[in-house]
Simulated assay, not measured.
Amino acid sequence: MKNKKKWIAVAVLAVILILVSMFWYYSYVTQDQVAERNAAIIKAKQSGGLVSTTRTWKSVWSQVYWVVQGKNAQNENIMVWVPFQKVEGQPNVPAADNSGIHTELLKNGVDEEKMKAIIQQQLPDAEIVSLQPSVFNGEYVWQLFYNDGSHHNYTFYRFSDGGSTGVKYTLPNY
């Protein structure tokens, strides 16, 4: 009986040790991502008029942007695009000057739910894999990654009016 209790205690201790190790590993692996997100939120509050944060997205196309959604001092919903630059051996950091930071009232653009409705109307058979705000060719857009049944595709819709940019990238099958 004592031997059985001993093995149960060892098994419980081993499970706890494995869970703690997995948490530490996850924290280690995501620390750069968390540091970038936190830096984007701070920069959006300092230079973009953000007061509170609702959601964040990381956009990587030709340049890294973090897009922060939240509220401004007037309690209006806003989106703030914060450009980042690569620093060798460190997480990406916000661009040094504030010229690349762009703030837009959500009411002056198309929010995520309206964008999904537009997509469903234009691409009724598309399975949306991800939809996120981004910057494409210097324009603030919604970046759509979707499956049309035969391929995965990227396409872009203007944030300002939800209109298509006319650019579509089809990924090869693998």
Rank of each mutant, 00 (worst) to 15 (best):
S27A: 04
Y28R: 12
Y28I: 14
V29M: 09
Q31D: 09
Q31I: 09
Q33V: 12
E36W: 10
E36V: 13
A39H: 07
S47W: 09
G48D: 02
L50H: 01
L50G: 05
V51H: 11
S52R: 01
T54G: 14
W57E: 04
V60T: 15
S62E: 12
Y65H: 06
V67A: 11
V67S: 05
Q69A: 14
G70C: 03
K71I: 09
A73I: 13
Q74N: 08
Q74F: 11
E76I: 03
E76S: 06
N77Y: 07
I78K: 05
M79N: 14
V80A: 08
W81H: 02
V82D: 05
V82A: 01
V82T: 11
F84R: 03
K86G: 08
K86V: 10
V87C: 06
V87N: 00
Q90N: 14
N92W: 11
V93T: 15
V93G: 07
P94G: 02
P94T: 05
A96H: 11
D97G: 12
S99T: 14
G100N: 03
I101E: 04
T103K: 02
T103W: 06
E104L: 13
L105M: 06
L105K: 09
L106Y: 02
K107E: 08
G109F: 00
E112M: 13
E113P: 15
K114M: 11
M115H: 02
K116W: 02
K116Y: 01
K116P: 07
A117L: 13
Q122E: 14
L123W: 12
L123H: 14
P124E: 00
A126T: 09
A126N: 08
E127F: 07
P133W: 00
P133V: 00
S134P: 15
N137H: 10
V141Y: 00
F145W: 04
N147W: 09
Y154C: 03
F156V: 05
Y157F: 06
